[in-house]
């Protein structure tokens, strides 16, 4: 019974066409790579990554660009779903795929796959750029946790994109979601700064970024931290699914 609501190839194909045919959404997707790797390369080249300037965790510093890439990931997730609320576009989508669960899962699957692919590329580019430009002090592949952090950065960016997409399905506005999440991530995280532990470590961005660290930082380990982020995203996705399923379109 539930198998009939799973994504099908035609539904996935349609969602792929819908995402790639919107310049803004494609722009946000590209920005994940450009912002993450670009900022990392710039900061490394500018020499900000010098001996002793890396703080207590050089591996985490090697993914400094993620702070910007995650904004792009959120914008990508939000805009991919927000397109459905533009002038009642959801009605058109649901007349072509009337099974709402299938429609929803198909869209989220395409958002997840694209964000993961670009996120992995961004993590890898960011790490190698840091190595190439940052000199001997930059962490290399032999640094403990380096491989996990590269893979983790892709997963983390995917989780943030899905979190934003799920919230957009609930709130029916991409602008509203960006207005909520960007201040949360920029202001709250920067105000709290390097504080260790406390309730703030369970916020979606701070918990997820544990996967980028080589040194323990608070109560959450790298994978449990990413797991906490994934739970946030799952909650948003579930709420979005209920909203799409039960509301009149």
């Amino acid at each position: 019974m539930y198998g009939t609501a799973l994504p099908t190839r035609p539904a996935l194909h349609a969602e792929w066409i819908k995402i790639r045919s919107l310049r803004g959404t494609v722009g946000a997707l590209t920005a994940i790579l450009v912002a993450t790797a670009g900022i990392q390369a710039l900061s490394a080249a500018a020499g900000t990554v010098e001996d002793g300037s890396l703080g207590e965790d050089p591996l985490f510093a090697a993914f400094f660009g993620i702070n910007f890439g995650q904004i792009a990931a959120i914008a990508f997730g939000a805009s991919a779903f927000a397109a459905e609320f533009h002038n009642g576009g959801l009605r058109v989508s649901l007349t072509s795929v009337p099974n709402r669960t299938r429609f929803y899962l198909s869209k989220m699957a395409v958002v997840a796959a694209l964000a993961l692919a670009v996120g992995l590329a961004a993590g890898l580019a960011s790490f190698t750029a840091g190595q190439a430009l940052g000199g001997a002090s930059a962490p290399g592949w032999d640094t403990p946790g380096a491989g996990r952090a590269v893979v983790g950065s892709g997963l983390y960016l995917m989780v943030m994109a899905l979190f934003a997409a799920g919230l957009t399905a609930v709130l029916r506005s991409g602008t509203l979601v960006l207005g909520l999440l960007i201040p949360l991530i920029l202001i709250v995280s920067f105000v709290i700064g390097g504080l260790v532990g406390g309730p703030a470590q369970y916020l979606p961005d701070r918990a997820g970024q544990m996967v980028l660290r080589s040194v323990e930082h608070g109560a959450l380990g790298p994978w449990t931290g990413l797991g906490v982020s994934a739970l946030w995203a799952l909650a948003a996705l579930a709420a979005g699914w209920l909203a799409v399923r039960h509301r009149d379109a």
Binding site: P10, A14, I17, S21, N87
Partner: peptide
């Protein structure tokens, strides 16, 4: 069933061809 409900329901930033391609793809 083919339906025209609201002429404004297509996303303004897409081209007509992409809009129709997406609908076509979902229904093979």
């Amino acid at each position: 069933v083919g339906a025209l409900l609201d002429a404004h329901a297509a996303h303004g930033s897409r081209t007509a061809r992409s809009h129709l391609r997406a609908l076509a793809a979902a229904n093979r």
